[in-house]
Design a protein around this nucleic acid. Structure first.
Length: 479
DNA sequence: CTCCTCCGCTTG
DNA sequence: GTACGAGCGGAGGAGC
């Protein structure tokens, strides 16, 4: 059985540390649930699943085992209550954590060496060009070098001094030859310290080179999962150099990676909730949603050229954007950004009304609830104007982000239930709107097709749910 | 020496 | 003072 390692520590050698890790973080999660009453509304998600019976015996064993490990008598009742709520999903998480994901340690070693040389070269060049030796990783020291020693123009300040973040450096890229070197250094150092070195170390811990993360079930305000030790939900994907790290994640022999992600799930939820005719039609007809948005705002002729603006607006809507930030994002004056936002709401009238109704609901009731009734509380009573504005943005965002989390959790439970005894397929990772599986070559298409079916039909909305599937011999190939 | 906050960067 | 949700590594200061 999937969790045999958890119940019988002698069955597999070397898994003790995993058991400890599992119990530790689960216990922390349970304590969180007990502490924060609002998370009890998770019950709706699991009630919706209605999958209690089959694993009852094993659950009981697991529960008893936990009580043995954590002798916290006074919290037994509460722990039991919390445990019931976790009933189904806890298995999915434990399964993923136990499966782990294999890394190519030889490739990571190569990356580490070449990247290390590169960092040393950049360091030497930075010292030479700037004329001083200092700790490049220290924002404080770097600020002094750039804005005092070299006398570059300051752009913005942080609480404690000069800002030297990527936006500031990019703005100064032509001002001094050290700037492009710093940008390259930052990227290389980040990859080395946060990804390459820790992943290599973890990969070498196990003879099968598999890395095991911890997924936290109660680690977010919205109902999403989070991942830590290591965080496998923020492995680089955007930069070219970062892509090499994804090459180092590989399936075991005879298996392929399959990535299935929900396409535009939050915007689909916006269409579903708002019932906006234009949005609903676009998704029903499987059109390019950002392009269609551009058509509605700017007209047919300009739509192609303005698609990226429409895309930024679409995402901004889900975050409760303001014109200033949209302007910054697009590199245009906030006045122009405001005009675009106004044009959007002119074209999508019911979206505007709907977003307003979310804010009203949150303010009147002091909470917001997602598609499957997960609640997030807000204390408007004691909030000043700034906090209140933040709560309204969070209310809007939680509806979409949290509902999307509900849906993928439903899918994960359904998939787990169907495949838990099938060694031809394992679920390895969840990255918010995406699942990554390891599937045996022989059953690749059969199982992938079934997973797609499950995910697209997990819940009935006004618009269809759509997933995109990718198959590859490394994580990098899943695109 | 450990712990904490800040900064900056990675991701959906 | 205004775009949501996360985790991690390094610097530097506070406190033991």
């Amino acid at each position: 059985m999937i969790l045999s390692w958890l119940l019988d520590t002698n069955e597999k050698v070397g898994l003790d540390y995993q058991i400890d890790k599992y119990f530790n973080h689960k216990m922390i999660a349970f304590k969180d649930v007990v502490k924060k009453g609002e998370n009890f509304s998770n019950v709706d998600v699991y009630k919706a699943c209605e999958y209690a019976a089959e694993d009852a015996l094993m659950t009981l064993k697991l529960f008893n085992k936990q009580l043995e490990v954590f002798k916290e008598k006074e919290s037994e009742e509460l722990l039991k209550l919390a445990f019931d709520l976790e009933f189904d999903f806890i298995y999915v998480l434990a399964d993923m954590e136990n499966n782990g994901i294999k890394v190519d340690v030889n490739l990571l070693k190569e990356l580490k060496e070449t990247n290390n040389k590169y960092i040393q070269e950049l360091t030497a060049q930075i010292y030479e060009v700037s004329g001083v030796e200092f700790n490049i990783n220290s924002t404080k020291q770097l600020g002094v070098v750039l804005f005092e020693t070299l006398g570059l123009a300051t752009a913005k300040k942080t609480k404690t001094g000069y800002s030297t973040d990527e936006a500031v450096l990019s703005g100064l890229v032509d001002a001094h030859p050290v700037i492009p070197l710093l940008l390259k250094y930052r990227e290389a150092y980040k990859l080395q310290s946060t990804y390459i070195e820790p992943l290599l170390e973890l990969g070498l811990e196990n003879t099968d080179n598999r890395i095991h993360t911890s997924f936290l079930h109660t680690g977010t305000a919205t109902g999403r999962l989070s991942s830590k030790n290591p965080n496998l939900q923020n492995i680089p994907v955007r930069s070219g150099a970062g892509a090499k790290i994804r090459e180092a994640f590989i399936p075991k022999d005879g298996y392929k990676f399959v990535g299935i992600d929900y396409s535009q799930i939050e915007l689909r939820l916006l269409a579903h909730f708002s019932k906006d005719e234009a949005l609903v039609d676009a998704f029903k007809n499987d059109l390019d949603i950002h392009y269609q948005t551009a058509v509605k705002i700017f007209g047919e002729e300009l739509a192609k050229e303005k698609r990226s603006i429409a895309k930024s607006i679409n995402f901004g809507l889900l975050y409760g954007m303001g014109s200033k930030k949209l302007g910054d994002t697009l590199g245009i004056p906030s006045k122009e950004a405001k005009f675009y936002i106004d044009s959007y709401f002119e074209a999508f009238r019911s979206v505007k009304d709907y977003l307003k109704s979310i804010e009203d609901f949150a303010q009147i009731n002091g909470y917001i609830k997602t598609l499957l009734n997960r609640k997030r509380l807000f204390d408007f009573e004691t909030a000043n104007a700034m906090i209140k504005a933040a709560y309204l943005r969070e209310s809007v965002n939680t509806l979409f982000q949290g509902s999307a989390a509900d849906l993928i959790k439903l899918s994960m439970v359904e998939i787990y239930k169907k495949y838990k005894n099938n060694d031809n397929m394992k679920l390895l990772l969840q990255i918010h709107d995406e699942l990554i599986f390891e599937i045996k070559d022989e059953f690749l298409y059969e199982i992938t097709k079934d997973l797609k079916e499950i995910m697209e039909n997990i819940y009935s909305l006004r618009i269809p749910l759509k997933v995109t599937v990718s198959i590859g011999n490394s994580w990098q190939e899943l695109k």
